[in-house]
């Protein structure tokens, strides 16, 4: 957030855009691996300390042997090179704590996180646009004041706190919605019943998370619309007798799409951050919770795997958005890049 400055599109040309983009990604991924590797090296305690458990049962000899078998006894630079080599061959290794392949762990947790994020984002875009259009129709009117008040407020509310309060009200007091999880486990629903079950579980976390993004879209749409109010083609359309809503949807809204798409791409990076908190509050079985546990237990392979994976995801989203630019606004060359 607070990223107004990051939105400026930077034009640069040269190589074929897709290739250039992919090449740009390599140092970033390399940097991420290095950064996290270093931080976790500085951390007190490693996965063997976690495995030693509560009783502190393992003797120093056993712990030394375990470190040897995980390669933790080797010099840091060697561990680092080994890890980079692994990554280069797209092998994420296995979690020493969970005794499962990292790739498998990530792939089972990815769909819930994506479902939550995409619904939250769609909800934010939908509601945000609506709010933006409504408030732009009469600047300074009561609707505008109310909408801008609500959006400012929603921007100030911490998502985790809103989640807690929503649980108190809608689950505990009113009993309308389940307080956590993605579906009723063991209920064996299928087809429509399953969809309905998931939807009921999705409502609170998705709405909670969307408030964080909502304000941004409302403002983007509002200002894009205001900019266009006096534009010639709008006046022409009006003169032709087009209805107010049609003008709004067809012309003004289309022009607001560009900054909105930009914003969506920018927010892809904050995907995992938002997930940690909301997934914790709502016991949502996603990547964010997995990442948090990996930190607590010094599960280096798993944590690096998740960060690596999420970075690739961010990059893919951004490339996709570069493509989208061309569709939304043919004037923008697909090579224009944002961070």
């Amino acid at each position: 957030m607070a990223g107004a400055g990051a939105l400026k599109a930077e034009a640069s040309g040269g190589m074929p855009p897709l290739l250039r983009r992919l090449l740009q990604v390599v140092p970033v991924l390399f940097g991420i691996a290095t950064l996290n590797f270093l931080i976790l090296q500085l951390a007190p305690g490693d996965v063997v300390d976690v495995l030693a458990g509560e009783a502190g049962a393992a003797t120093p000899e056993t712990m030394a042997e375990l470190r040897r078998s995980f390669g933790l006894d080797q010099p840091v630079w060697l561990q680092y090179l080994r890890y980079l080599g692994q990554l280069a061959s797209l092998d994420l290794g296995h979690s020493y704590r969970l005794n499962l392949p990292v790739r498998e762990l990530i792939l089972t947790r990815l769909p819930p996180t994506l479902l939550l994020m995409v619904s939250a984002l769609l909800l934010a875009i939908l509601l945000g646009s609506l709010a933006g259009i409504l408030s732009a129709r009469r600047v300074g009117g009561w609707l505008d004041t109310v909408v801008s008040g609500v959006t400012l407020l929603s921007y100030a509310v911490p998502t985790f706190w809103l989640g807690l309060m929503a649980i108190v009200l809608f689950s505990a007091r009113l009993g309308w919605l389940p307080s956590g999880g993605m579906l009723t486990i063991g209920a064996g629903h299928s087809g429509w019943a399953l969809l309905r079950d998931i939807a009921a579980h999705l409502v609170l976390p998705a709405v909670t998370l969307s408030t964080f993004y909502l304000a941004v879209y409302a403002r983007l749409v509002r200002s894009a619309m205001l900019e266009l109010h006096g534009a010639d083609f709008i006046r022409t359309a009006r003169a032709k007798g087009a209805g107010e809503w049609r003008i709004t949807i067809n012309h003004a809204f289309r022009n607001a799409l560009l900054p909105m798409v930009t914003m969506a791409g920018y927010q892809a990076a904050s995907l995992l951050s938002g997930a940690v908190l909301v997934e914790t509050v709502f016991s949502w079985p996603g990547l964010g919770r997995l990442a948090y546990e990996a930190i607590r237990t010094r599960d280096l392979n798993l944590l690096l795997g998740i960060l690596f994976f999420s970075s690739i995801l961010v990059v893919i989203v951004n490339i996709a958005i570069d493509r989208l630019y061309g569709l939304v606004d043919p004037r923008v060359a697909p090579g224009a890049s944002r961070a």
């Binding site: 296995h94 969970l98 005794n99 499962l100 486990i185 063991g186 919770r289």
Partner: peptide, 29 residues
Amino acid sequence: KAEELGNLDKQLGSGPFVVESWLEGDNVV
């Protein structure tokens, strides 16, 4: 193998209940 030890589908006991389904870190039925 080390990367399969945590697979609850393959961890078999002789107990009164068997694993029907599970999701690591989230649930076991």
